[in-house]
Design a binder for these strands. Structure first.
Lengths: 354, 354
DNA sequence: TAGGTTTACGCAATCGATTTAAATTTTAAA
DNA sequence: TTTAAAATTTAAATCGATTGCGTAAACCTA
């Protein structure tokens, strides 16, 4: 296709000259401005439709310094709960007449910064962010905040209070997960956690500790093992480390499903029975939890709802003056095979380790 | 944050007036135009850096009718091989100085059209597309093609030849998968396929048939069962349907892993042994293949490479006049537990059904 | 040194939609 | 019939970067 063949876009000027009115009238008619007569509006819209007019959003954005686009910046789009979050946000955004643009940071701060610049460049109307794992300096978001562009942090939220956020109650979730293990008879419970400078992992850990304390169970720093990435590789590493302990725990609360599954596989390969010897509960309720054997108990993460609420906050911030707000959603335990000791106890059971 | 507080962006005019030169010179200096003196360029860049100047890509796009952004439109970002494709494309795009914007169609034609308009609206420089399942009319892409904006179809490609594409050799893949089952001793092989109006599924099916023919095995239309969505639910449905056949096949080639896994689970739940009674091979090599029991044999899909090649074609199309080209990559069989009959045959084996 | 080139830069138009302020037409009250 | 008020519409500026065209200054060459 050579240059000359390119179709030229229809502009408001084309419509204006054909209707023998001014471009400003066309613009206002298309935007349903009150000052334009009903007849004129109808005529403009009719012709616009006929001619296949499509507003040049670039020009519009240049003038208004806005777009009808919400940027979503996440760590990895292939994480099930992240894509659910996006799906929820897309749904809500679409209903409100907004488009959504997605970028991923691969958990890398530099990419986070680069994407941020890009999204700022295309003048997204608002931004929904799930932070990169390492991020603990938030100054690169000032570009948006200083310009009054709403930023909503979702799930991986920053440790500062003067920003809008949607998240889950990680403390309660950690507590519930641990309590669930306790209810299944676990006496010595380990925790595979994410880096505690991310509040969500810290809170899950706090919940875990609180449950131990409430039930008068042993707490010890050696029971908490941290993962940098919460990846499958890390899961194996953590499980290996777990097995070096003097007393092997009989329950593990993992900060995500990926680590839980990987650890479970490794422990089983080493001859441990799950849940009899070691019960395991994950976090997020990824679809894979139901596909493995034993199926993985986990905390259900309302990721899709989180996305919807994030957009709801965006819309509020866009309509009114910029408001700070935090929405916190609840989670619940999903019991599956990896912690289901009740049934097993029907049959004679070999005694737990530790 | 109220309106008045907003920081104003630095423009080339700000730089120009401070340096007492014209805005055009600033613009050219920043773009390294040959006609600008080295001294001037240095001074402009220095001040730009100091002042934190950031080019307004919206204004630039308006003027040039281009952006430095590549749009990627896929069906579902949470499919492992799709996110790999995106990762590959992002990597290649980044190296070439392009940004990437992702949208998903949820396999819905209307969303495909809406996203297309949006991406056109923000003047992406090029588009990489994996088609929605139902798409068999491609006229909505004319908006791009008629305007000389490169469109590269990836993986799910259209049934027309005058467009650029990157894909895998689905015929060979289907052949290899089937041949692999045959090599494992399967005599009667079923195929769970995607809708054949998508060429990739059609080709896999052709490969399947060709392998049967070459090995003089029974071919019958009842052995081919089509799925609309290739989802887990469908996988179960297809397996149920398979069990209604007069003679139960001893091997299944599934058009994706999701269906394969779901079908396998169902068959095992019905008392069949995999791979002894029925061997199963999937397609894509999703990570989950290694996590289930038995592990799933599959066709490795070079999705990430596909993404890289797609961007390579974009860059070619952008540099030169728009060229049509097709890149086809090879796949290979990954043998895992679900087809591993050789080892089992060491021990006495109950005879295959059918 | 006159005339021709280069080099380096500025002017002003342009991209298309929006918006302020002003002009025009219509309506309604006096 | 006037005239103020209301309802429409328009002209022109604007958003910020790019670019065709023009030109002054510096540099050559014969």
């Amino acid at each position: 296709m050579s240059q000359e063949d390119k179709k030229k876009d229809i502009t408001i000027y084309d419509l204006a000259s054909e209707l023998k009115i001014s471009a400003s009238t066309v613009s206002r008619a298309l935007n349903d401005h009150f000052s334009i007569g009903a007849e004129t509006k109808k005529a403009v819209r009719k012709l616009a439709k006929e001619k296949g007019y499509r507003t040049n959003v670039i020009a519009s954005s240049l003038r208004t310094n806005k777009s009808s686009t919400i940027g979503i910046m996440v760590t990895w789009i292939n994480r099930p709960f992240i894509s659910s979050l996006i799906a929820g946000a897309e749904k809500a955004a679409k209903e409100a007449g907004y488009q959504v643009i997605i970028t991923q940071t691969h958990d890398d701060i530099e990419m986070e910064k680069a994407n941020l610049k890009m999204l700022y460049g295309i003048r997204v109307s608002a931004l929904i962010v799930s932070l990169a794992m390492e991020t603990n300096d938030y100054s690169h978001f000032d570009l948006f905040l200083d310009n009054g562009i709403p930023v909503i942090f979702a799930d991986r939220i920053p440790k500062k209070s003067n920003v809008s956020m949607v998240n889950i109650n990680n403390f309660n979730a950690g507590f519930d997960a641990t309590q669930h293990l306790i209810d299944q008879g676990c006496k010595r419970i380990a925790h595979f956690g994410g880096l505690p400078h991310q509040t969500l992992y810290e809170d899950r850990c706090f919940g875990y500790k609180a449950a131990l304390k409430k039930n008068n169970l042993y707490e010890g720093e050696e029971l908490i093992i941290y993962a940098n990435q919460l990846s499958a590789d890390e899961g194996k590493r953590l499980a290996e480390q777990l097995l070096t302990l003097d007393i092997i725990p009989d329950g593990i609360f993992c900060a995500n499903d990926t680590v839980a599954i990987s650890a479970m596989k490794y422990l089983i390969s080493q001859g441990y029975n799950v849940p009899e010897d070691i019960a395991i509960i994950g976090f997020n309720d990824d679809p894979i939890c139901q596909l493995i054997n034993p199926t993985l108990s986990t905390i259900h993460h309302p990721a899709e709802k989180l996305g919807e609420y994030a957009v709801a906050q965006v819309l509020l911030a866009l309509e009114k003056d910029y408001k700070i707000a935090t929405t916190t959603l609840d989670t619940y335990v999903v019991q599956r095979g990896s912690t289901d000791r009740k049934i097993k106890q029907m049959k004679p059971l070999k005694s737990n380790i530790g």
